[in-house]
């Protein structure tokens, strides 16, 4: 699997927020075997060191970072944040989030397309956090995005794949664009389901960070993603309306008298 020409063996992208401690964060990233972690940027006072400490931890892990524009409500804010992230993290990758509403954290797809155009023209490699809407996805691809990241469910909701049909249609519509289910997953079976649909990868954070044992959950997600991908490659059965006996009926003994 590759994103913008970067080959990756792990199909799990892991967020770095909300872990109970830096040690648990480090252990969870290691257990997940993720090669890409998401990061963000926030205000820091001259006297504070927390951001610097966090950055040292991430650098020590040798993983690739995908900075986000979380919290941005307009295309302009997202573009400025992306520029700051590119300099700070020294990467053209940006997880582009433009949020309409703090209650639902639903993507503002209009602002998203607007920001994606500007950023792609400016040399960024954009990972847009979007919905499963195919028209929006088409616009994002037209704008130059070579990865799409539709939501599974609202951020942090742990509901899984709210619209599996829509995600399946998206896979069929974009056979050659890497697709990542981003957000809303709660348990490893949700991630396996995304992979069974043929998605290339899964991005999650809260489901691991706020689990009772984040390190074990990170490993569980990694295994589920591997299993789901293997199942997709093995071409699963389509659901049927009627029963079909698994044991052959030919050659059955005639015992009816």
């Amino acid at each position: 699997m590759s994103f913008y020409g970067v080959e990756l063996s792990s199909r799990l992208l892991l967020g770095t927020a909300r872990y109970p401690s830096p040690k648990v964060l480090v252990d969870a990233i290691k257990a997940s075997e993720a090669q890409v972690v998401t990061v963000s940027l926030r205000r820091e006072a001259g006297s504070e060191r927390s951001g610097q400490g966090f950055w040292s931890i991430i650098r020590s892990l040798g993983v690739r970072v995908l900075p986000n524009t979380a919290g941005c409500h307009t295309a302009k804010e997202a573009v400025t944040t992306a520029h700051m992230a590119r300099e700070l993290f020294d990467t053209p990758w940006i997880k582009l989030e433009v949020i309409r509403d703090d209650e639902t954290l639903q993507p503002d797809v209009f602002g998203l397309v607007e920001a994606a155009k500007v950023l792609n023209e400016d040399g960024f490699e954009v990972f847009p956090y979007t919905t499963e809407d195919l028209s929006v996805a088409d616009r994002l691809v037209e704008a130059g995005c070579r990865v799409l990241m539709p939501w599974g469910a609202p951020i942090g909701s742990a509901r899984g794949l709210n619209n599996a049909y829509g995600l399946k249609a998206m896979r069929a519509h974009f056979p050659d664009i890497p697709l990542v289910v981003d957000a809303g997953l709660g348990v490893p079976s949700h991630a396996a389901a995304a992979m069974e649909l043929g998605y290339d990868a899964v991005l999650l954070n809260t489901a691991v960070a706020e689990a009772g044992d984040p390190v074990a959950m990170a490993k569980a997600f990694a295994l589920a993603i591997e299993a789901g991908r293997m199942a997709f490659a093995a071409r699963p059965l389509e659901p049927r309306d009627m029963a079909a006996p698994s044991t052959p009926v030919f050659g059955m003994a005639a015992l009816g008298g």
Partner: peptide
């Protein structure tokens, strides 16, 4: 002026 530093993110 806005001054930002690396931070945890999802």
């Amino acid at each position: 002026i806005e001054v930002v530093a690396p931070m945890q993110g999802g």
